[in-house]
Design a protein around this nucleic acid. Structure first.
Lengths: 338, 338
DNA sequence: AAAAAGATTGAAATGCATTTCAATCGAGGG
DNA sequence: CCCTCGATTGAAATGCATTTCAATCTTTTT
């Protein structure tokens, strides 16, 4: 408190004030056994008294490690998505917590371009040790190239068989199977899958649904609607166009996320189709509004907390030179009224 | 691509490869007029060829500025809030975009403790130029102390008259007035405000509601329910307890956010009270589920995009030594069915 | 043609913390 | 009593980019 001088204190200042040398201060602060206990306590008290804090940039420059992890989040798709999907926010919260536990800084990035150069630049220029990529996208090839530049990276999503990078994601196949079994249990036999299967995650959900259908003794058909936008409106429009042309209406609908499920339910009801009377519906992600929608939506929930911790744990191992395997997180069906 | 050497290139490497000195490389990269155009192009091409990127840490060390802004976000209250309020996510998206535009890095922080030391530490140790505080809280005193340490900080919320720091926030007073006038227009005369007025923002919303009531020619009463938790359940329970004891039921309800509005509507309906027949309801924030709730909720929307840009613009001015005034953002009533 | 002004460039210093390596001191061994 | 070892400490080097200041080379001015 007795600091008239405005300039921030440096380690040299503390050294002078404590009558020791810079290396001793450095060692005291890092709790090195190379410094006498008394000396260390003295230095620490002087440092505290003057409110000294190490200059992280100098520290990062000297160490080759920055203890900073870049997290890329595609806010644009969030905005586009009229009814925002809070799922990514939960994931971000999980990652933030996990990084905090490990004393790592979180650099939040919204890359302008989805190319290797942009990603590589973030790592190099912004000075991050590793990269966590959240948010789906058609980026498998790009990420493969990126990982090939020896970039420590972990991705949220679904792993390709030949992926050269580590992926943490939902058990999409199981998610689809859970939905399918739920439908079968309700006596449903005409499934409809809504989603763009050019995304691997969604293709797997579709595949899980199919497997459940194939496992049934009765004949079960699975129809598809491909959506090319993530917005509520796009889903709503697609639902209406579908209702105009469809011959045999489905009695079960599995949507790639809760937003799309809501859009379809609204369109169905307006067309006089009852949910859950005529059609059973299952969504994905268990976003908060799912439980307050009318009817409350049966959906697939993922453990975002676990996801955040896994993403971080794996990335740290990669940075340390290890090559951890991809993993899928806990995935469960939340039974509600749809 | 012809780099067998794994070690990242330094500026000295590029200087040698381009047959110039380090200062020339530095100037070429920063587009300084102090370097000949031809020389600059040559250096740039050599740098690009070898995939060189400046070491941001060395750069930050040398400049006194880090071009990094710390953003604190209280994920805990987000988790507590059972139905998550995507509002903060929107705000974060706005801030992220605005920082990106200005080429500033975004360091996302979830401070463990709400004390000056923790906040100061983030600024000093993490090496950020300034601080954006998102998320409400009882922190006015702490932030005052924090700002008094000459910390460049901008806060999302409501400004106290004697605040020594810059605040950007909703026009809460107007928000309350809009709700009140909406009720009056529907012939409502018994208002109920739901929220904890120990938070300045909510106190102002309550005050706006009161002013609208006072401006009416008829007699209008305003009742209060104070919630001490932000969760959906807490609001739902409070609604039921209220219904047990209340003598004269309200005919208009203004809730501090959309989640609480939903909880009250659910409780009211279960008690046989019709919304909007018996009671008109206005929420706050216009979260996505507000429009899909049954009935779709009339609510107060804030321009989060503008908010993000304002927060950043003001912070940059503070860092440059200016002292911008606090501001309120656009606030409007979204008419729906409640 | 000499002098002054301007354009380019580089050597060395700087920012701050960490690390290497050598120096010092007292203790235990022979 | 001399020597070696361990403990403790500090001087100097290091990491990388930027900045100051002086040096060199061109032009322009008179």
């Amino acid at each position: 408190m007795a600091d008239a001088d405005k300039r921030a204190k440096t380690m040299a200042d503390i050294a002078r004030l404590a009558n020791v040398s810079k290396p001793t201060v450095s060692r005291a602060l890092s709790n090195s056994p190379l410094v006498n206990a008394e000396t260390r306590d003295h230095v620490l008290s002087v440092a505290a008294e003057h409110g000294y804090a190490v200059n992280r940039n100098a520290q990062k420059l000297r160490h080759k490690r920055t203890n900073t992890i870049a997290v890329s989040l595609d806010f644009r798709s969030h905005r586009e998505n009229h009814i925002s999907d809070p799922f990514m926010f939960d994931l971000l919260a999980g990652v933030s917590e996990a990084l905090g536990d490990r004393n790592q800084d979180l650099l939040l990035c919204a890359p302008n371009h989805n190319d290797v150069v942009s990603f590589r630049q973030i790592l190099n220029e912004r000075g991050a040790d590793g990269f966590i990529v959240l948010g789906q996208g058609h980026r498998e090839e790009m990420l493969k190239e990126f990982a090939a530049t020896a970039a420590p990276v972990v991705v949220w999503g679904a792993a390709a068989d030949d992926a050269n990078y580590c992926v943490v994601g939902s058990d999409n196949l199981l998610g689809g199977q859970l939905a399918g079994r739920y439908f079968l249990g309700k006596g449903r036999r005409r499934f409809l899958f809504v989603g763009d299967i050019s995304f691997r995650e969604l293709r797997l959900r579709r595949e899980g649904l199919q497997r459940a259908a194939d496992a049934s003794e009765d004949e079960v058909v699975v129809d598809d609607i491909t959506l090319h936008s993530f917005s509520y409106e796009a889903a709503y429009d697609a639902a209406n166009r579908y209702l105009d042309v469809v011959e045999n209406r489905p009695d079960a609908l599995f949507a790639y996320n809760d937003t799309a499920a809501m859009a379809f339910i609204s369109a169905f009801r307006e067309a006089g189709i009852d949910v859950p009377g005529d059609v059973s519906v299952v969504g994905y992600n268990d976003i908060p509004s799912a439980q307050f929608f009318s009817p409350p939506i049966t959906t697939i929930r993922q453990d975002t907390h676990q996801a955040g911790h896994l993403l971080v744990a794996k990335l740290m191992r990669i940075i340390d030179g290890d090559t951890p395997k991809s993993t899928q997180i806990r995935t469960e069906l939340i039974l509600r009224e749809s």
